[in-house]
């Protein structure tokens, strides 16, 4: 590795880190984040309700881990991470253009790729944090009586990892969409709740064109309960392939977004 290349990498890493901390602290405080935070914490609230009702024998007894696997994870996987990724991912560039604040970033000694990557990482980290916190809390509440069983933590770890991968992947995709399309929300909604929801049930290789396919491949197939139909006709890819594909998809879209952002000109209207 030539020294000048090394220096470049070092500079890029430093810039990315600075952009990251900029937007992480900015987004942390914004009102929108608070609202989304409440949204991702509602399952915890739900877990509490379930737990109380179990203690007071108000409902039939269901295993905590069953509720966790079938409902909480389904809620996060099929709904919340899509909404979060869509909003934060498309915000990476769109909010700079809408708020006309792009200039403040592009006149600093940080490369445009570093802006995209840093901001993407900041937002992804923030929403992964949000989701993880919600998931972990609901998990603990629901399994209050079995906290000593190690196998349960494996499940928790696996679920959190899958959700984190999902957020990473979707946010990358929507970052890219936000970089090319001016009005990315409509497209994002149709993609999230149309394409991802329908194509995943198609047979053969067709379903491999969705991101959710790889995410579900990482989860064990669920046979019982109302939500089993969601995994209807899943022809899972192997764990290795799935993880590889998720990282690949994220990387490809982020690189595309960087390239586009570096060479596309954004003209802020007065």
């Amino acid at each position: 590795m030539s020294p000048s290349f090394k220096r470049k990498i070092g500079f890029f890493a430093k810039s990315t880190k600075d952009v990251f901390s900029f937007f992480f602290s900015l987004a942390k405080k914004s009102r929108r984040t608070k609202i989304f935070f409440i949204l991702s914490f509602l399952p915890v609230f739900m877990a509490f309700v379930v737990k109380f009702s179990q203690i007071f024998q108000l409902s039939r007894d269901i295993e905590g881990i069953y509720i966790f696997n079938n409902m909480i994870i389904a809620f996060y996987l099929q709904f919340l991470i899509l909404i979060l990724a869509l909003f934060y991912g498309s915000s990476v560039t769109s909010e700079e253009l809408e708020g006309k604040t792009l200039t403040y970033l592009t006149t600093r000694p940080v490369s445009k790729s570093a802006i995209i990557v840093g901001k993407y990482l900041a937002y992804t980290a923030l929403i992964i944090f949000m989701v993880t916190l919600g998931v972990v809390f609901s998990f603990l509440v629901l399994n209050l009586s079995e906290l000593r069983s190690v196998s349960l933590y494996k499940i928790l770890f696996r679920d959190v990892a899958v959700l984190a991968l999902g957020l990473m992947c979707y946010t990358a995709f929507f970052t890219f969409v936000g970089t090319i399309l001016k009005k990315s929300i409509m497209f994002g909604l149709i993609f999230s709740f149309g394409w991802e929801n329908v194509i995943q049930y198609f047979p053969g290789s067709t379903q491999k064109f969705t991101i959710v396919h790889y995410l579900k491949s990482l989860l064990p197939s669920v046979s019982r309960g109302r939500f089993s139909f969601l995994l209807f006709r899943l022809e899972p890819s192997s764990t290795g392939t799935s993880i590889f594909m998720l990282f690949l998809i994220a990387a490809v879209f982020i690189v595309l977004a960087c390239v586009l952002f570096t060479y596309k000109e954004y003209i802020l209207k007065d």
Binding site: L42, V50, S59, F79, S94, M186, L189, R226
Partner: peptide, 25 residues
């Protein structure tokens, strides 16, 4: 953009939320 997501999200969310509760109880 934010409002669009909320209009869509709150509607779907309330539905999922109630379905989960209903399933449990």
């Amino acid at each position: 953009r934010y409002v669009s997501i909320l209009i869509f999200g709150v509607y779907i969310f309330s539905d999922i939320f109630s379905a989960i509760f209903k399933e449990i109880f």
